[in-house]
Design a protein around this nucleic acid. Structure first.
Length: 878
DNA sequence: CGATCCCGCCACATT
DNA sequence: AATGTGGCGGGATCG
């Protein structure tokens, strides 16, 4: 059939074009059988051209498919000839053949026909952009290569780039699994965030001044880039590391380059990146030695990448005429804004969608790696047994700059923490991490972790009990406190005290926000946040430099000192992907309608408050640690704040923006702890403000939408219990791991809560796994907004109402109203289960249900233990 | 003649 | 050692 088409086509189209068409057709048809036309594209005429060609063919022919192809080829040839000849008729073949052959040979072989871009199109045509989550598509490199009639090498070029965007993931040797673009937006978002950190400054410079910039640029690169750039790469690498096997060869420059290249676009204001600049930036290391040859090689690679990206419809070639002259460049034509979940509704269970479990399983190894970041970030550390040698290696190994060193240290610490946490978590939930969504961006995580100069790590989760890890606790405590000695020492100690628990303890007293993240940013941005949000990009750019500086400085300060480091780490974890979660939960009583309504208006104000909080928290320290202090003060304000509900969102949004822009670390996890004030006397709420990325986030950075994982805990419980902050973020994909992790954390809480009272957890939507959806509350399958997701859940369970508030910023805010806790609405038991699943299930978690159960059991247990501890702690110190 | 970038050698990684 | 990966750059082709 194909043949026919071709023949038809051929005549119609001009030779050159024809080939393309054919190829496309091929691409389409090929799905099942390679039957097609490989030949056409493949090698028109093996014979004449290259002697080797024949050999190749023969070799390939080994496979039946190949034979078929060859046959076809023969058949085709005539056709081709005819095509070329212009006269469609096949009749001519015979006669024309030779002559035609020559002609056509010349033509045929046209380079264009063999271009990587075309090949990529064919490749992409074979797979659905948005494959059903259920079906998992595996790609056999050999098969594809043969089908498309190209050497495997070429397929690698394509796959590597696709992999960098998480459109595919490597499952095994010669095997890749196709994810499609489900996670693309998430990936892009992550890249953007990472890019801002790494390249924000640079890009700004470039755009501003090219020449001078170049110089400076080079310098900066070294400074700025090195840390980041190197690290970012890590993303992948790290994953690999985690996998145990090291990353293969270097770090797979093509992949990294691809990501970096994409980052440049995403960071660029103009969305146009010239090849030379990109090459210069990407050369990184060599800056000094900028060999011309190296530059040249880099450019070649960029072309390769650009071809693939072009095929994906993400960029297009353009020319920029600058002072120097006309230069080749590419313009980003893909999505620019990445709300919580761009592409698809998957928000709830972002990851899951893209990757069905099966896929995950299949992809797992890889995913792990790729998502490494996530893992890291989240519980990332949990996944791998160890932080991954690679990571460490990189960290330690690359001593680019002082910064790095710091980072390294930081990373190391983080890793350690992560490891500990991981262990615990693993114990509880074993696999979840593994299953993590493939698509998640490893990058961000990684970057966050190691790469980002600003390491704001947040603790991913709080653990309920883990007596075992005293170390962890110590760390966590430190993390919390680090920055803010003042804050917490006393209070913190308690948490810390909670010996084994990594979690944070919050005083039951009031509400506080914990911000993970960028303290620096917050401070800076605080003011701007509210207003700026809209303009982030602009501001961001402007802000970036300073922010970066600050961050750096802060980081340095932080990282170097053990305590400090910890904090960042904690922040990171929390924040991680997500920038800032916006959602807030409001207890009905207190807030209820009145406030909720007011929210929009108040949001701004509230936002301010929040910001302030953030600042406080952030800057000093430990979000968690601060809890008491911050909390208390907040308490008084709580009501107001609550009324402001939106505020948080905005704030968070603002923060996110800011943070992202500047630090990039945008991820500040923010948690709001609300004490049972009025209505909810008995309940405590923890909100994570962050974000974004994770959960649903998306919103995080750019989007105002808020997704916040929240944990409600009965006040009583809280009083005595340390509260753990769930990691907010999870990227859609990553969610799995995160989710799992989170879930675990949350679980523990819930458990505790149950024990004493009934704790309710409100998860952010992000966390919600699609699969879970079945639960009543659930789902969120509405893709729409992350916030929405949350709301539904709440609504159901609690009757909470979520509101989207346009708010000042226009960021959507979600408010949740909770019915009176006291009342039954939240029956802990009934609710929880639902919530848990809904919230926590992560797509990624494979055996979620089981895991859950287990977890719950554990949690319960833990809770009890925790309670004990808590009680003790509570009594003792404060 | 510069922009593109195909081709495939060959090194490194994995099996 | 065989095979999978993929860095890399010569040099052909395009515009």
């Amino acid at each position: 059939e194909n043949i026919f088409d071709r023949s038809r086509m051929a005549p119609k189209t001009p030779i050159k074009n024809e080939p393309v068409d054919l190829s496309k057709q091929k691409g389409c048809t090929p799905e099942r059988n390679p039957i097609t036309p490989v030949k056409l594209t493949d090698r028109p005429q093996p014979d004449p051209w290259t002697p080797t060609a024949n050999l190749k063919i023969l070799v390939s022919a080994a496979s039946p498919d190949m034979r078929d192809r060859e046959k076809k080829k023969e058949l085709f040839r005539p056709i081709e000839n005819s095509e070329q000849s212009d006269t469609p008729d096949s009749l001519q073949y015979d006669t024309v053949d030779d002559s035609t052959v020559d002609e056509f040979e010349k033509q045929r072989p046209s380079r264009k026909q063999k271009s990587l871009g075309l090949l990529c199109q064919k490749f992409l045509a074979r797979y659905p952009s948005y494959p059903l989550s259920t079906e998992k598509t595996t790609i056999s490199l050999d098969e594809v290569a043969s089908i498309l009639g190209v050497e495997r090498r070429r397929i690698y070029d394509i796959v590597n780039v696709l992999e960098s965007l998480h459109l595919v993931s490597r499952v095994a040797k010669n095997q890749y699994c196709w994810h499609g673009r489900h996670n693309l937006s998430q990936t892009l978002k992550t890249l953007q965030e990472a890019g801002e950190l790494q390249y924000g400054e640079l890009m700004t410079f470039f755009q501003q001044k090219e020449q001078d910039l170049e110089y400076k640029f080079g310098e900066r690169k070294k400074e700025t880039v090195p840390d980041t750039q190197d690290r970012p790469l890590l993303d992948f690498a790290e994953p690999d590391c985690s996998s145990a096997s090291a990353n293969s060869r270097k770090d797979k420059s093509l992949r990294i380059m691809s990501q970096k290249f994409v980052m440049l676009f995403l960071v660029s204001k103009t969305k146009i990146v010239t090849l030379d600049i990109a090459a210069k930036i990407l050369i990184e290391e060599t800056q000094d030695t900028v060999d011309h040859s190296k530059f040249k090689t880099k450019v070649r690679r960029l072309y390769d990448i650009a071809n693939v990206l072009t095929s994906l419809g993400l960029i297009k070639k353009v020319h920029v005429t600058e002072e120097r002259g006309r230069k080749p460049a590419f313009k980003w034509i893909g999505p620019v804004e990445f709300p919580a979940k761009t592409d698809e509704p998957r928000g709830h269970s972002p990851t899951s969608d893209p990757l069905p479990q099966t896929q995950r399983a299949a992809c797992a190894p890889y995913q792990i790696c790729a998502p490494g970041k996530q893992r890291f970030t989240r519980h990332a550390s949990f996944n791998g047994t160890q932080p991954s040698e690679g990571t460490r290696r990189k960290v330690s190994s690359e001593p680019n700059s002082p910064r790095q060193e710091r980072q390294d240290e930081y990373c190391s610490k983080m890793i350690n923490l992560a490891t500990v946490c991981r262990q615990k978590i693993e114990e509880d939930t074993r696999n979840p991490s593994i299953t993590s969504p493939p698509s998640l961006l490893a990058l961000p995580g990684d970057s966050d972790f190691c790469v980002n100069p600003l390491p704001q790590a947040v603790f991913p989760v709080v653990q309920a009990d883990v007596p075992n890890l005293s170390l962890v606790n110590g760390v966590s405590s430190q993390a919390l406190h680090p920055a803010t000695p003042a804050a917490s020492k006393t209070e913190n100690e308690k948490p810390t005290l909670l010996p084994s628990q990594p979690f944070l303890c919050f005083p039951s007293s009031s509400l506080f926000m914990l911000c993970g993240g960028l303290q620096e940013n917050n401070s800076r941005e605080i003011l701007p946040t509210t207003g700026d949000v809209g303009n982030r990009s602009t501001e961001a750019q402007a802000a970036v430099p300073p922010a970066a500086c600050q961050k750096r400085s802060s980081h340095k300060c932080m990282s170097p000192s053990a305590p400090v480091d910890e904090e960042p780490a904690a922040k990171k974890q929390t924040m991680e992907h997500s920038d800032v979660p916006l959602s807030l939960v409001v207890p009905k009583k207190s807030f209820e309608s009145p406030k909720a309504e007011s929210v929009p208006g108040s949001a701004c104000t509230s936002a301010v408050h929040l910001e302030a909080f953030h600042l406080d928290l952030a800057s000093p320290p430990a979000p968690e640690a601060t809890d008491k202090e911050s909390t208390k003060p907040l308490d008084s304000q709580e009501q107001e704040k609550w009324s402001q509900n939106k505020g948080p969102d905005e704030l968070s949004a603002g923060k996110e923006h800011i943070s992202k822009e500047k630090a990039n670390q945008p991820f500040l996890p923010q948690y709001l702890y609300v004490q049972p004030t009025a209505g909810l006397s008995s309940f405590n709420f923890l909100f994570s403000a962050n974000q974004a990325s994770g959960a649903i986030g998306l919103a995080a950075s750019q989007l105002p939408s808020l997704s916040v994982p929240c944990v409600m805990v009965p006040s009583a419980a809280l009083a005595s219990f340390p509260v753990v902050c769930s990691p907010t973020v999870t990227s859609p994909l990553s969610p799995v791991p995160d989710g799992s992790f989170t879930a675990a954390a949350s679980m523990s809480f819930s458990m505790s809560g149950l024990a004493s009272t009934a704790p309710v957890f409100i998860g952010t939507t992000a966390l919600v796994a699609p699969k879970v959806s079945p639960t009543p509350l659930v789902d969120p399958q509405q893709p729409a907004h992350p916030a929405l997701h949350l709301s539904p859940v709440l609504t159901r369970s609690c009757g909470a109402v979520k509101l989207d508030s346009p708010v000042c910023m226009g960021h959507p805010v979600t408010l949740l109203k909770l019915q009176q806790p006291s009342s039954a609405p939240l029956t802990p038991k009934s609710i929880r289960p639902a919530h848990h699943e809904a919230f926590f299930k992560t797509p990624g978690s494979l055996g979620d249900a089981v895991a859950w159960k287990k977890n719950e059991g554990n949690q319960t247990r833990n809770a009890s233990s925790v309670q004990r501890r808590l009680e003790i702690s509570s009594t003792s110190p404060d």
